[in-house]
Design a protein around this nucleic acid. Structure first.
Lengths: 154, 154
DNA sequence: ATAAAGAGGACCAATCTAGTCTCGATTGCT
DNA sequence: AGCAATCGAGACTAGATTGGTCCTCTTTAT
């Protein structure tokens, strides 16, 4: 688990698709190209538009396109647009709910774990996702693993 | 979001607690010490026992203790015990459900993202969580962030 | 004017989650 | 041997979340 929602998955797929072709794409086209049902595509894109990941053009010949260059949009942007801020635990998201505060050593550490996950996802851009081989990604993941292993002394 | 479940959060808290004190702890004690309701503590520990993160001792004077040294148990072990394998998307978890396979550039890349998240979490051990200041964690997170930034060229 | 688009939000079914409870199996102590 | 303390397995419920659809209104190119 530790899963992103299906809608977010769709969001990445759609955004990645937009990253590879330029002009405004109407929902109907995107639905056909990604094989995701049109109402769902529409729902996802409305959320992405609100978060300014994509821009919309109404009316005939309108549609959606990315609001920035693919290499300037990380997957975190998309995830946060559809699910709210990255917060691995409730503690991280909303400090008030934790009644254990005083005695909870764990809490401060969760915040750091959260940062680690955020950093990992923020390093991955839509342009990486669009690239089939994902050459840069391979490097990225390998280096993250090595950084950890070095610290741990494995 | 991208959240672990509450039960998993409890699992980490309980496991961290076990990491700081030795002998077998009955559920009743752990419940009192962590302020988590006893039936819930029991549920979590049963799952952790099945995954061999903790060992159990039945009968009077029984209880739970860690199955390995705290520095040999990563948070991933606990998360996977309670939620199943880390799988950021359905694709990563179960390849059969994805009808887009052929045309889905994104899929292989999700696998890599998944690996990155896994690596980030696997580097964090229970002994790190038990440490209040979390000195080693600070280093860990910082280095992960730097590794990313270096790659990206920011 | 008309048709092609998106915006906003209501709505429902299905699934997942948290939490409790019951009953049975072990085990140490007296 | 008997008792009390503990864990093991799993059923069960209420509530929250998610995925997906649909309807109505606004905007805009032709």
């Amino acid at each position: 688990m530790l899963r992103i929602s299906k809608l977010t998955d769709y969001g990445i797929v759609i955004a990645t698709h937009l990253a590879s072709c330029g002009g405004p794409h109407p929902v109907s086209d995107l639905s056909a190209e990604t094989e995701i049902p049109a109402p769902t595509v529409a729902k996802v894109l409305k959320a992405l538009a609100r978060a300014e990941v994509v821009t919309s053009q109404r009316g005939a010949r309108g549609g959606y396109q990315l609001a920035h260059r693919p290499e300037d949009i990380s997957v975190v942007r998309v995830i946060e647009a559809l699910e709210g801020p990255i917060a691995v635990t409730e503690c991280v998201d909303d400090e008030s709910v934790c009644s254990h505060e005083a005695r909870c050593n764990v809490r401060a550490n969760w915040q750091r774990i959260n940062d680690a996950v955020y950093a990992a996802l923020d390093g991955i851009k839509l342009s990486d996702m669009a690239e089939p081989g994902g050459a840069r990604l391979v490097q990225l993941v390998r280096s993250a693993g090595e950084a950890n292993r070095a610290r741990i002394g494995v």
